[in-house]
């Protein structure tokens, strides 16, 4: 922190940017956990009582659904980070 106090504005901006980033990452990781460890493992038996187009729902999450959600999560992260970086003026694009 020491040398940064000479440029307080920049240091604050970096800190705020980092906080936004952490918030976003935590939110996305909660979803990541729920679709895989939650739906695919811990609550698989309950979800299996529901059928999704011929596949028990828990089994579907474990073998198909979680993977599709993972892909969406990364692209949501890419999009949101781009917006955050533009806002804080730290975008490399």
């Amino acid at each position: 922190m020491d040398r940064k106090s000479e440029q307080p504005e920049l240091a604050d901006k970096a800190k705020l940017y980092w906080r936004e980033n952490i918030k976003l990452v935590c939110g996305l990781l909660v979803v990541w956990f729920i679709v895989s460890f939650g739906a695919g493992i811990l609550f698989v038996d309950v979800l299996n009582k529901v059928q999704l187009g011929g596949v028990p729902l828990g089994f579907w999450f474990a073998q198909q659904g979680s993977i599709l959600v993972f892909v969406v999560l990364i692209f949501v992260y890419v999009g949101r980070m781009r917006a955050i970086e533009k806002r804080f003026g730290v975008s490399d694009e």
């Binding site: 990452v25 996305l28 990781l29 990541w32 895989s36 695919g40 493992i41 089994f59 474990a62 073998q63 979680s66 993977i67 993972f70 999560l73 990364i74 992260y77 890419v78």
Partner: peptide, 16 residues
Amino acid sequence: SVYLMGWTGGYVLLAL
């Protein structure tokens, strides 16, 4: 399923 979720979910960690 451990392989399916495990070998793809890691990319979320890697990207984030």
